[in-house]
Design a protein around this nucleic acid. Structure first.
Lengths: 241, 241
DNA sequence: TCAATGGTTTGGCGGCGGCCGAACCATTGG
DNA sequence: CCAATGGTTCGGCCGCCGCCAAACCATTGA
């Protein structure tokens, strides 16, 4: 009762299967309706309504009404980062233990969105390529874009430092729960994701976090980053499940 | 059931008042015995034992036996960062709502440890000073030590880049829950904390996260960082509670 | 105006899990 | 050897909270 006050509330909110499923789904970055979230969590709409009410009340989610529907989304990057970090811890805990591994799980491990940036095998591959070429430097505690990285990213279409002119740091490592290695988050991560979508390299699955790579994307990713995704043997996540 | 698996477990573990209190206490960075943690959480030893067993089982805590006692500590920096991020989210949620504000709460807001670095009014003040002097740059997504910052920190006694030679990024912003602004975490944050202790500028309260500033610290902090803590009016946190 | 759809509220059921006390085990010190 | 201390295990109690169905409200479209 001394220091931890409402921190308990927040964690307890996430510590329920139905609510966590909704939150994880919304980590795709898009807004979904209450009914959609209910079906994802496999609960009735009434139950979902209660959960969503709590999540909004605690400011973990925000709502926008549009015509008949209420669209829920992650309330802020801060919440997204909290969920990332919980997931990162959860992925260590007891390596082997009833891994579900559905069909979607394989796709999820291969390429997904993580709120506003790319994750999974693809996300890590891009990060690796950027590091290997000396465009960015990543460690446990932070990330940095090098001078040559600035040129490279600008050429790619990334809009650098949109808000504050002098601040040059916007590249953050994010521990990928499926690959157990870093991918690029922060402003740079979000921009790379955006550029890939703009170029038609990636396409989102209808709802959820899964991302598909288009034929143009196969070529573009190889030419730009030197990532060869066509070869199934290289992407263990895809081949295994 | 699709994406969120054991993430639920981890969050649920934190989402209990007794366990969260223990975790928050251990965020002081030191190891404590089961009995000590039980009394902090105001529960019996038997209850605490059950909780601690779960936390260790989930790898949130680790134990070391020393003579008669079992010492528990936060298992990894990853766990510490998770707790930080949960706390950061919790501090936003519903600004006004039964704030406890005990006597200790005031000291906690003034100066405390956050796993391995300094937080509270003091932590933010140090971060502000470093930024104002152009020694470090902090944004939402990352931090960087400038060239002049390297010289300054080295002179102060900070050991830079202890492990990997070429990696230069080890400075991370951490959102202070009490001040709602950034303080310095990561390797640099931990080193600054260490140096302050080594110089006798700070002294820890017996157990818990509270840090006291010694007379030498008052002087040193003013001379080195230009932080004037003697003036009560400047440190709202201290004066108020 | 009426039917259909999206969402919330209410009431009641059921189970998980936290809590304690008491007994038990292990280590230490006399 | 025994007493004291730190910690765990066990059994039982209690309450919180998640779940659903059904009723209700609101918006939209015909």
């Amino acid at each position: 009762m001394v220091a931890a006050a409402n921190m308990v509330e927040v964690a307890a909110l996430v510590g329920d299967t139905a609510r966590a499923t909704m939150l994880a789904t919304l980590m795709g970055g898009q807004a979904l309706t209450a009914s959609e979230l209910a079906s994802r969590a496999r609960i009735t709409r009434s139950t979902a309504s209660g959960h969503l009410g709590k999540l909004v009340g605690a400011r973990l989610l925000s709502v926008t009404q549009k015509r008949r529907n209420r669209y829920y989304r992650i309330a802020s990057p801060l919440v997204a980062r909290m969920l990332e970090s919980i997931k990162a811890v959860a992925a260590i805990e007891v390596p082997q233990r009833h891994q579900p591994r559905s069909i979607d799980d394989g796709r999820l491990r291969f390429a997904r969105t993580c709120y506003d940036h790319l994750a999974g095998y693809l996300g890590v591959a891009i990060a690796d390529a950027l590091v290997a070429n000396g465009y960015v430097v990543l460690t446990d505690d932070g990330g940095e874009v090098t001078a040559s990285g600035m040129r490279f990213l600008s050429a790619f279409g990334v809009v650098l430092a949109p808000n504050s002119g002098s601040r040059r740091i916007f590249c953050r490592p994010c521990l990928d729960w499926s690959e157990r290695r870093f991918h690029v988050a922060g402003h740079v991560g979000a921009e790379i994701h955006r550029c890939c979508l703009d170029r038609g390299w990636l396409r989102r699955d209808r709802e959820g976090r899964i991302v598909r790579i288009t034929p143009a994307g196969q070529i573009g990713l190889r030419k730009t980053f030197g990532i060869d995704l066509g070869d199934g043997s290289r992407c263990g996540a895809n081949a295994l499940w």
